[in-house]
Design a binder for these strands. Structure first.
Length: 933
DNA sequence: GTTTCTACCTAA
DNA sequence: TAAGTTAGGTAGAAAC
């Protein structure tokens, strides 16, 4: 699938009419302190074309959409956002027709030619299940529906919003619960369909309150009543996040290409009643209607793995506080600049680079400067003492006039920026902290200036962009307070939030992040001088604009380097959730999405979990460390993907869990297992668990990523592939976490405690096996000893003196031990540490060898050097100590240490006793000093 | 002056 | 509403 190049983009497009080139030949760029023009690195110069009246970076409209004939041409696009709205019923032959408002799903996406698409999807309705009462039959469905409908409608009272029917259908079906093994037997369930997603909650609550004769009131366990509507839809229609969607010819209907769809066929089957086409409601180039039963979601194979030429806009704003150095307030302080950079996914050069400036600004090479300047100039201010009263009054009047004009300019700037955004029509909006700063500031500022046309940044024309606060509290990510900004159809891909989620850095300023990932500093304009630069002249404002543009360029470059978009799209595809979920939600929803898909294939239902206080359960073993400095090689053996492999090997799943001893009695002993924690599960020969299947999928995807990693030469792309395989591993690991999630969608302590109990048993067994085999009694020169181990690893001192010998024994031992465990459990030799400093549980360091010749790196775990809750100086000091201890063993320091390390096997040096008194840490100039004892 | 609890962060 | 897990080190405050 070819991506769209800039050449095609500009084809036939006029430059933006409002744009005025500020100068035909830009003056020289200002230089940074070291004399190097730091911007040349990222801003391509278009000087060669300086005399042209159509400079680069001004064509931002999308290519014109092709003329499609819906009766013969399919419409194919990559969907990037899915949501729903409540609208009037439009599709004939669907349940709920004519009963009032119905939910309509919406897919936003991009075609391979770079056209934006919105597809309204009709006819899909929310539902949930309850077990059918004993002796229930189809003839009872109507009574049941009516009783529940009455209850829900009564519950709605004043908030009915024209809803005429709440419960649309009650049907019988054969299903089984996912939770527990019931001999593969199906039983009768009732599928309750309601007219709107928001009615699921009251219906689910009231279903246990109604009395349906002759069954009476029943306290139902409800199933799948807690599934997000989008996820429900995607699971049922086989759509995964960011998949390619094909609307076959004859199955969809245009809203905005009246010239090509004059007599389009009706959606939902050849009824005689010709429908009037709906007018378009979005700003997408192609807007269509389709039935939820009539589209194809392509599996991510072959050409359907491609990524459409998605438009990414990065922007950054500058605002100037009235008071120097104060934090700007949108109520009072103006937005003085907005820089915008746009690229197509897959390309490195931006096709738009501009900056909106309040007041004049000198030209910047390669950047379209759009000036919003007042006619009058800022009046010259002389020191008060020198001005006469008349002069002062005149000055103040001029100042007021100037400021009023400036306000008008700012209003215009905001207005035109919103228009620019709509014309550019980005699929992805990025930047640095845009969600919690730039966007709220712009929205608040537009409100303060009464720019009524501003807060319409989404793709739905009349839908206002709104803001609200939300808190995200998870044990894994901690508590986070964020703004939620509604920009329908565009994904807010805030790089700051992404880095906060995916990385653990000491500092998250754009500057330090750029340095960390791009090896490049951005020279910060300190916020205290922004106001002065703005109050200066067109050159000082230009300087500010250059920084502003750079702040918009950097997120794009970071996004590209870290391959964030691709990785997130991959994650959405693998786990099946919408792209936006990967950014804004936790791990659980991904597991739920996968679980629901697998369950659906087998007619299994997920119960709604009633949250009650869960018991705590035991986790992993940490082998008591034999603390010390080891001057001989230590081999490390690891179980790869321990918990996932345990779940696979022992078929641990909701669907294989045996609750009652009476159930076990119906099985032969070879049909089930007892886990070390005393729980029982049927073997895969009886029924294969869903969780093991999901894990197989994830781990095979990981294998693929690792294979690609092996082929990849570019070091940064290697890191990215490494990141992907790590993400898949994390996803696989979170399957275990999901079953143990205390406040979760479906915790199952039997599974999680069985997993950890197997793990404990395995690490014990590995320790025993290796120590029992590699001993003097068996003819080996030394008694091997496991000096440490944590969860899935054992560190073995074989006693041999060389890395090569240690590796040889390590490989052999790993193979020997692996053979004692069922597939796919595998203990692998991973590395040798030599020398190795074992300080404490979860605190150690060593030189890391994967080949006998040279060490790969110095590996530090849990020590101050890798922790972020101490000052950098402490980390550096400890790092130096570790270098001296591990690397310069025969240097001066060695002597210092040597007095304490007489016998390498007898620990003397305990680095944890190096106490650093942080109070004595001080800073002088650019250097830090520490006093330590 | 010791023990206990809490916050924070990391290992796996 | 939605939020992966337990084990465990270290530092400093609070409790005894």
């Amino acid at each position: 699938m070819a991506t769209l190049g800039p050449r095609q983009l500009s084809n036939g497009l006029e430059p933006h009419p409002k744009r005025q080139r500020t100068s035909p030949s830009p003056p020289p760029l200002p230089s940074s302190q070291d004399g190097r023009d730091f911007l040349n690195d990222c801003l391509p110069d278009d000087d060669e074309d300086a005399t042209s009246s159509q400079p680069a970076m001004v064509h931002w409209k999308r290519p014109p959409p092709p003329k499609l004939d819906p009766s013969s041409d399919p419409l194919v696009f990559q969907q990037i956002d899915i949501d729903y709205y409540v609208g009037a019923s439009t599709v004939p032959g669907m349940p709920g027709m004519g009963t009032g408002p119905v939910p309509v799903l919406r897919m936003f996406g991009v075609t391979s030619d770079g056209n934006s698409v919105c597809s309204h999807i009709h006819g899909f309705l929310p539902y949930f299940f309850v077990p059918a009462p004993r002796d229930f039959s189809t003839q009872h469905c109507a009574t049941f529906r009516s009783a529940l409908n009455t209850a829900v409608m009564g519950d709605l009272r004043s908030s009915r919003d024209n809803i005429r029917e709440a419960v649309l259908a009650v049907e019988m079906c054969r299903k089984s619960s996912i939770y527990g093994f019931y001999f593969n037997e199906m039983s009768d369930f009732l599928r309750v369909t309601v007219s709107l997603p928001k009615l699921v909650a009251p219906a689910r609550r009231l279903v246990s309150c109604i009395s349906v004769p002759p069954f009476g009131q029943i306290d139902y366990q409800v199933y799948e009543a807690n599934i997000d509507f989008e996820v429900r839809f995607m699971v049922d229609t086989g759509v995964v996040g960011c998949s390619w969607i094909e609307l076959p010819a004859g199955k969809y209907r245009f809203r905005n290409q009246s010239q090509t769809c004059g007599t389009g066929t009706l959606i939902g089957g050849g009824g005689a009643s010709e429908m009037k086409p709906h007018p378009p409601v979005t700003r997408c180039q192609i807007e269509v209607d389709v039935s939820y039963e009539d589209f194809i979601s392509h599996l991510q194979e072959g050409e359907w793995q491609a990524i459409a030429p998605v438009r990414i806009l990065s922007f950054d704003i500058e605002c100037a506080a009235k008071k120097k150095g104060a934090f700007p307030e949108a109520q009072r302080d103006p937005v003085i600049q907005i820089a915008n950079v746009a690229v197509l996914q897959g390309e490195t050069e931006p096709f738009v680079k501009n900056v909106f400036t309040l007041d004049t600004c000198a030209p910047i090479a390669g950047t379209d400067v759009r000036v919003f300047a007042p006619e009058t100039k800022l009046p010259k201010y002389e020191a008060e003492l020198r001005m006469s009263e008349a002069e002062l009054r005149k000055y103040e009047a001029e100042l007021r006039k100037y400021e009023a004009e400036l306000r008008k300019c700012e209003t215009q700037l905001l207005k035109e920026w919103a228009e620019f955004l709509q014309e550019l029509d980005p699929d992805i909006i990025t930047g640095y902290n845009i969600v919690n700063f730039d966007l709220p500031y712009l929205l608040n500022r537009a409100k303060a200036l009464k720019v009524d046309s501003f807060p319409y940044l989404g793709r739905v024309r009349d839908s206002r962009t709104t803001m609200r606060d939300s808190t995200f509290d998870s044990r894994a990510y901690g508590k986070r307070v964020n703004k939620i900004i509604s920009i329908e159809g565009r994904i807010q891909f805030d790089l700051f939030q992404i880095l906060l989620r995916d990385t653990k850095l000491r500092s998250y300023t754009l500057n330090s992040v750029s340095y960390h990932f791009l090896g490049e500093q951005k020279e910060d304009v300190h916020h205290s001088i922004i106001t002065d630069l703005q109050k200066g002249n067109e050159q000082t404002r230009r300087r500010l604009a250059v920084y502003c543009v750079k702040d918009a360029v950097l997120p794009i470059r970071l996004l590209d380097k870290l391959m964030c978009l691709i990785n997130y799209m991959e994650m959405a595809r693998v786990t099946g959730v919408p792209l936006a979920y990967v950014l804004s939600r936790g791990q659980q929803i991904k597991v739920v999405s996968q679980l629901l898909r697998k369950a659906r294939e087998k007619d299994l239902l997920m119960p709604v979990h009633k949250s009650e206080a869960q018991e705590e359960y035991a986790g992993a073993t940490v082998i008591e460390p034999s603390r010390g400095y080891y001057n001989i090689p230590i081999a490390t053996l690891d179980f790869s993907s321990l918990y996932p492999s345990i779940m696979q090997a022992h078929n641990l799943c909701y669907t294989t869990l045996l609750f009652k001893s009476t159930d076990r009695e119906r099985l032969t002993p070879d049909q089930y297992i007892r886990t070390p924690s005393g729980n029982h599960f049927v073997k895969s020969s009886v029924r294969k668990g869903l969780l093991p299947e999901i894990l197989e999928d994830l781990l095979s995807a990981r294998k693929k990523a690792k294979a690609e990693l092996k082929e990849e030469k570019d070091s940064f792309r290697r890191k990215v592939l490494d990141g992907r395989q790590l993400a898949l591993k994390l996803s696989a690991n979170s399957v275990y976490g999901f079953t143990g999630a205390n406040v979760g969608k479906l915790p199952c302590i039997e599974i999680s405690q069985s997993v950890t109990s197997f793990g404990r048993q395995m690490i014990d067994q590995s320790k025993n096996l290796v120590e029992r085999k590699y001993c003097v009694a068996n003819g080996y020169p030394f008694d091997a000893k496991v000096i440490y181990g944590d969860t899935d690893s054992v560190m073995v001192r074989f006693g041999v003196g060389t890395v090569a010998e240690s590796m040889e024994l390590g490989r052999e031992a790993a193979e020997m031990i692996s053979a004692t465990f069922p597939h796919p459990i595998k203990l692998e030799f991973e590395k040798v540490y030599f020398p190795y400093l074992l300080i404490n549980k979860k605190r150690y360091a060593g030189l890391f060898f994967t080949r006998p010749e040279t060490h790969d790196k110095m590996d530090c775990k849990g020590i101050e050097t890798v922790r972020r809750d101490n000052c950098r100086l402490v980390a550096r000091l400890i790092d130096t100590c570790l270098h001296k201890l591990l690397l310069d063993r025969n240097q001066t320091t060695h002597c210092v240490c040597q007095t304490e390390i007489s016998d390498p096997l007898q620990p003397r040096v305990d680095i944890s006793q190096l106490v650093i008194s942080k109070e004595l840490t001080r800073t002088s100039g650019s250097k830090e000093y520490a006093t330590w004892t």
